[in-house]
Design a protein around this nucleic acid. Structure first.
Lengths: 202, 202
DNA sequence: GATAAGATAGTAATAGATTACTTACTTTTG
DNA sequence: CAAAAGTAAGTAATCTATTACTATCTTATC
């Protein structure tokens, strides 16, 4: 096996392609990412991409699969072994913040896909991802009501939307400031307000 | 003056162009809006647009001006004559929700502009808009702390980010559900959580 | 174990579609 | 009639995807 093989096996190239897209999305409007830019980032010619993916949408599909797996597994791991539902929510929040700090392009790609008209496969995958995410939130919120940690009259649906919105607000703030590191710094303060908003007042 | 003049004066065409872009943004990814699509919506040929705007970016610039004026004037009017800072925050929240319900493409355009690399003029206008918006929020939040309606230890910066995030979360939710009307319906529940998060517990 | 064969992964060039913008000319309006 | 507003056609650039060809890797056979 040579040090710098010019030909990589298909699965490694597919993984490298996903990585290139994620990195590019951190630097520019995700919907303006071209196949030329992806190939250039990988040190390949543009046409080479189509050895591994039939269309550009298939690339986005692979990216969405990658994101869904990583994000959900991270938040599942974060909530694992935490008894208190409220503490678990905080762990999920911070795990999510860590994820978007490492991959600032990801939330922007998701939001961008959601805006596409019609019923593309990548769009449907994002919808599914967020629905699965919201399910986990609703489960934790319901448990919190049961234990009494959360307000008994809490609107679980609104609390779930607010949770995602809190993260989205941090992403937007970092875009305005042009500083991705801001997300991590401002996250605790934002979660503190959220926590207070859903917590049991007594 | 004929009933249906084929030639409109420049200022009316400019206003109609802005309206066409706002409407198109509600239906598709704002960054995919073409000059052909704008012209078609107006019943013109594509080249006619360039009689009134030197470049496509100049069109976006006009749209951003329109949005900034309308949105800020609406929330100023909403907060006017409301003594309680907390009640004023709620009025601003609902006025903003009304605005995005009428123009679902607007928050998506703003978010899209923020993602563009470099320092384009439309992008800078969005940053300025949101900064001015946040200023008004911080002012109301500070007043709320002074009156005792809000928690004395409240992190005003985090509260401002959370406010914008709450709206952004509702926008995202409506995109996932593919139902713009959801925003208005879910808004009160989301604001209730926010209100509780910043309010004085006593 | 070397090596030929076949599959896999790459390049360079280009096609075909679409984009923002221009130009030469025509219609409408005051 | 002159200025303003619109059309139709075209240009140059850019984008996804394809094609014809080449380089590299894997593997079966002697």
């Amino acid at each position: 096996m040579s040090e710098h093989p010019k030909h990589l096996p298909a699965d490694e190239r597919r993984a490298a392609t996903v990585e290139a897209v994620i990195n590019l999305a951190a630097e520019q409007n995700p919907s303006d990412i071209t196949t030329t830019a992806i190939a250039q980032r990988m040190g390949l010619t543009q046409g080479a991409l189509f050895r591994h993916f039939p269309t550009k949408d298939a690339i986005l599909e692979a990216v969405m699969t990658w994101v869904a797996e990583r994000l959900l597994s991270r938040i599942d791991k974060a909530a694992q072994n935490i008894v208190s539902p409220l503490a678990a929510l905080e762990a999920v929040f911070m795990a999510h913040i860590d994820f978007v700090s490492e991959h600032p392009g990801v939330p922007r790609m998701l939001f961008g896909e959601l805006q596409r008209p019609g019923e593309t496969l990548p769009k449907r995958m994002v919808q599914t991802l967020i629905q699965r995410y919201a399910e986990r939130l609703r489960h934790l919120l319901a448990r919190g009501k049961a234990t009494g940690e959360l307000d008994a009259s809490l609107d679980i649906e609104a609390a779930s939307v607010s949770f995602i919105g809190a993260i989205q607000g941090l992403v937007m703030q970092s875009l305005i400031a042009g500083d991705a590191a801001r997300i991590r710094r401002d996250a605790p303060g934002v979660f503190a307000i959220y926590r207070r908003g859903i917590g049991n007042a007594s």
